[in-house]
Design a protein around this nucleic acid. Structure first.
Lengths: 184, 184, 184, 184
DNA sequence: CATGAATGAGTATTCATTCAT
DNA sequence: GATGAATGAATACTCATTCAT
């Protein structure tokens, strides 16, 4: 029942990564001190340096070892043949969503600035609401076909914002054409 | 031509906010020191405290005064009647995109973690590519109608991710139905 | 009577150098902490960094600004003509000795290892004594002319040791010939 | 061929002292960490404490066990009768010089301050050169008898410096009289 | 209005040492 | 005998903030 040295070391390493992930997510990478992490792991700061070269190494290790890109890849490349695309797609995106939820802490590390989070939420919320209102009005006037305007607004807003942030330019006309094909 | 006291004070305040925004965007809020900001403004750190109570106040001021939510609001609530919805929507999203581009520095403050940026870009890139491949395969098989699969993939990915991040739950089925109505 | 800012800064700088020199001499450069130096100056450690970039900069500044090489140079190159060489030389070496005494703290910085100082003193003491005994015996036997054997021993020992330490090889035969010319 | 327990222990002890001496000489006592020494000996830091109570004990052991005072004593007290003093003295000092060379590492431990070594060398070099110039000038003027002025300068400089450093006061007049007897 | 000297609390990191295995 | 996990205290250095000038 007792651990061997090797097991104990592996366990401690994981425990430290767990603690670091949690603390980084809560306070941001810069906002979290090595002492914070050590305390969260019930350990002295010095011990951290037996397992990781530096605080920065902790971050990069977290990003590489705890990154969920492999899972994402597996998820999306599995053999999906023989089942209806729409059903399949729904399941797929659901799984992707769940993956993000499971890795909420890591996602939080990607987005630092704890302080600005509320302001960001407000911006996103209002943006989506306003676009939704616009769409709903046009549906009411009969110009656009009836559809889930709230979801459409979300889609439009998110796509523009993510494209802008990740640096890959977006052809807005294509996006609109995708959602509202052949409408005039 | 000389400034009044009031004008000079206002000018300095704005100058300090400009400097802070630039430095925050470049180094992250935590990574930027008051000295950094002061230097960027060609001023001593002490002076900052005549205009702002603390470093934190600088951030919140930036978020509230330099937030582009008012512009966004104006943009989306203008009177759009009398012009085709699709044309209008394209213009609207284009303007929104431009607004984000103009406020790139502020957006950078929303998303800190300089260190993780590369990892995030990789995740987003690969995720979108994989979904795109899936869609293209189904179009090739004739199951899905021909469409811009790359843009669709972007849309799906971005919408799921943003929803997860902003905390508002997303009904994935609705999202799929929106993009691929009545397909089976 | 009050100091200008400029004067105060200059004064503080010197005060910090004074404190550093004293502490370095007492504890050795490595043994002395920045906190030690700050305390010796009645100041917070942080302040030190307004005046010097690092602890190392403190050492090099001490070596360059407080080095007494200029004084030594002046001492030895002054115009000595017109006075007997022996008288002059005695005065010169006395002044050199006084210069070293005045800069005892700095000399202590040149020679670190507080711990080994006693052992070194013992080595030097015994070495000189033994050489002195040898010389005295030979004088007693009439082989060497009567002379101040203690001083001769000191001279021989010191010259060999310093040459070895400073890396410039010494021709021992020349040294002996210098002190005991034509004796056999 | 295999070692007894006792022999193995003795061997390890010596090996650790060897490693410590080498590392201390290279990095200075304070600059060398126990880990450095252990690594140099191909061993873990913990093991050091089975053989020596502390890092300090390592230094004092080195100083007492590896001190070459016994050898120096033997060298200088051997029976020298029956051979000319000058020849004997030359041989003696040569052996002393060799002894210092053999124990260069230990000598380096006596003199720490790696940082100041260059400054010290400059001081010594220039000092000896200037005194040499003075002597040469007086020889040229015929006031002093022709002699090896460079060696004399070295002798004078070294003797004053060592005396000052070891704390035993020196009568400068006696030193001059020793080198230049009856000259005026 | 603006400076810059000064502080106090904090930072990441190192290290001598202990001890269970 | 030897290891290596763990600690606690120290280290050099940074930084937000205050305030006399």
């Amino acid at each position: 029942m007792t651990k061997t040295r090797r097991e104990q070391a592996e366990w401690r390493r994981e425990q430290l990564l767990d603690a670091a992930l949690k603390v980084f997510a809560a306070k941001g990478v810069d906002g979290a001190s090595v002492k914070d992490i050590a305390e969260a792991a019930g350990v002295t700061p010095g011990l951290l340096y037996r397992y990781f070269e530096s605080k920065e190494a902790l971050v990069t290790t977290l990003l590489s070892e705890r990154g969920f890109l492999p899972q994402l890849r597996e998820l999306l490349t599995a053999d999906h043949r023989g089942r209806p695309a729409v059903e399949m797609l729904t399941e797929l995106l659901g799984a992707f969503d769940a993956l993000l939820a499971d890795n909420a802490d890591l996602m939080a590390v990607f987005f630092g600035a704890t302080q600005a989070r509320a302001a960001l939420a407000e911006l996103v919320g209002e943006g989506q609401r306003l676009i939704g209102d616009f769409l709903a009005a046009r549906v009411a006037e009969g110009e656009l076909r009836p559809h889930d305007t709230a979801t459409a607004a979300r889609t439009l807003f998110a796509t523009v914002a993510v494209s802008r942030r990740t640096g890959s330019p977006l052809d807005v006309a294509r996006l609109v054409e995708l959602l509202f094909p052949h409408e005039r």
